[in-house]
Design a protein around this nucleic acid. Structure first.
Lengths: 350, 350
DNA sequence: GTCAAAATTTAAAACGTTTTCATTCGTCGA
DNA sequence: TCGACGAATGAAAACGTTTTAAATTTTGAC
């Protein structure tokens, strides 16, 4: 104990009443330990005795110590930040919000933060990823709405930067992902409509460039072909179409000849638009037509009569994304990190 | 030049092919200068000769030098990050997106980044702000949708943390803000409807807890009282009501007795919902009723017949927010930093 | 009791930058 | 010619943490 008590609170806090933020040194001085020991104790290193560890933790809590993330980052090279990418013009609608909520839950007890990286000034969705990597703004990346040949996936695989996405690309390049089994969703949804006696089915598809559009189409077509039933696939609208336009489209379609009497709606907004549109055309749910919808919140449970739903738990998906990305960051050579989440079917299947 | 060339690239890069990221030292070695000089040259300090400054900049560009933000932050205490807060359950719809775009533009040529701070795990919207301050995750905060007694504003004023918000609180506590003149918007919009010969006007208000709801109501009521005209204020819906519910509400209202024939829609979604709803009830725009809408994108310019619009440039507001926040950060005692943006009226006023 | 091994703790260097203070070098007035 | 001055550059400390290597204390076997 030579000169451990330097005049730390001298005349140098006249600039701001910043109350000399506590550091490891503060704790060390109070506890009569070395900074090293305090650091180790706080990070629960094995070689520290239980007693010191507890004492250090207690002091830290009492004086409200928070580690300086800049110093940690400088030393370790890790930012303790996970970023989620937003497409150039994607808006954070309920979809991403639920996923973010799940990610935030997965990060809750860790030292990691979630930041949302908007991508407003660049034209391609890969530029935001490049920017993050170049400036080392995060330790890992999450993004959604993958395409079969996704430029982001390619870039990240090339640079070896940790990432995981919600959705898959084509199968030739394996990469970490969490995806929902949209094939089964569409297959079971279609079979349900058929089982209910519907004779012409249709599906509101996602935008064609997205991978999961293929999955839904595949599941739909498989069930349609097995049953040899009539179907139609709207070209003018998709899941990203604004709700009123969708409503008007469906209303117009219902008034025409050979209108469909069974709808697959892989999203709540499209389901509500379909109900409104059919209602505009004088059709009654359950009597004149049926819907099977994908539900991600509890929006549809209010409806009377009830529509058949298949649940997709986006919050759970977000938790998996967060958990698996951390796994990937801390152990770069875990092989083949992926997960396919099963649909949760809310009606009897036979 | 004693021993400036240490064996920097020894055996220590076997962990990762990280290509020894260039640092100030790298540049210094190449240029035959001291690290100090390089640092000064890059930050354009006055005492560096023009020649050295240019040379250093050139080398930095050539080897792709990027400053280590963690080191900068550790040394200066500044994070070079601006955060925009999202409400607990607010979704980033077109509204926030435009503002973020403007902020990003204002930050473009500076060293600042914009990050979006979601607030999913806390229940009140003030917790996200607290979290950011405690962990010093940003140098300044931006948020929107202020309330008359806004807990975030109070917290930030108390702690002296730099912030600026889009929208005002009550007038008793001055604080930095950028706001749109919603009084004038509503006043002129109402007068326009009256000038067009409408005899019963109505307005879709924002949620009552938000400050700018009062401003719109005030402008509306002022014009209504001046003209002594009939009016009504819907209680069951507001600007946050989902579009189909709004449409159905308006359609139902149009069918009833003494329905309004003039609508103030302070948002594009509500304007479209009003048109659809009136159309459902068999009413024709411009013939049976008129609308004055606030437009923030170019969504409404497509419509036939045209609706009268008053423009609010959210991107410009974002730019002002970013610019003024930087001003506030770099000079904490600028007094009374605020801006009231005038409506841009797209019809002849008389 | 002694000595080596194990269990703890510590000193010091390092991460990459900024900043304070000192140094060099030419230039100019006397 | 001398010293002083200003311009330009440099050396070294510091920010708060982690980590390597070393020092100290404790333990256990003989």
């Amino acid at each position: 104990m030579s000169e451990s008590s330097r005049p730390q609170r001298g005349e140098n806090l006249d600039t701001m009443p910043k109350r000399g933020k506590p550091t490891l040194r503060t704790i060390a001085t109070i506890a009569g330990l070395a900074v090293t020991t305090v650091s180790r104790a706080l990070s629960d290193a094995p070689q520290i005795s239980l007693e010191t560890r507890q004492r250090v933790h207690r002091i830290a809590r009492e004086i409200g110590y928070l580690p300086d993330r800049a110093a940690q980052r400088l030393k370790t090279g890790r930012t303790n930040v996970i970023a989620i990418l937003l497409d150039s013009h994607e808006e954070v609608v309920g979809f991403s919000t639920s996923i973010m909520y799940g990610i935030a839950k997965a990060l809750k007890e860790t030292s990691y933060h979630l930041v949302v990286a908007p991508n407003f000034l660049s034209t391609t969705n890969v530029e935001a990823a490049e920017y993050i990597i170049r400036n080392h703004l995060a330790d890992g990346l999450i993004f959604t709405r993958t395409e079969p040949l996704d430029a982001r996936v390619r870039l990240l695989l090339e640079t070896g930067f940790p990432f995981i996405c919600h959705g898959r690309t084509e199968f030739s390049t394996p990469h970490p992902y969490v995806d929902y089994d949209n094939f089964t969703f569409a297959y079971e949804a279609t079979r349900r409509l058929i089982a209910k006696g519907r004779r012409k089915v249709t599906v509101i598809l996602p935008p064609k460039r997205l991978t999961f559009c293929q999955h839904i189409l595949h599941g739909f077509m498989t069930a349609v072909r097995e049953a040899g039933i009539a179907y139609e696939i709207p070209e003018a609208v998709d899941l990203d179409t604004p709700a009123d336009l969708l409503r008007d489209f469906i209303s117009a379609r219902a008034a025409a000849l050979e209108a469909p009497d069974g709808f697959i709606c892989p999203g709540e907004v499209s389901a509500l638009a379909a109900i409104s549109g059919m209602s505009d055309a004088g059709r009654t749910l359950a009597t004149d037509y049926d819907i099977v919808a994908k539900e991600t919140s509890r929006l549809l449970t209010q409806l009377q009569p009830k529509v058949d739903t298949i649940h997709e738990d986006l919050t759970a998906a977000g938790e998996d994304l967060g958990r698996m990305l951390l796994q990937r960051i801390n152990n770069p050579d875990v092989a083949d990190l992926h997960l396919l989440l099963p649909p949760q079917i809310n009606f009897p299947i036979g």
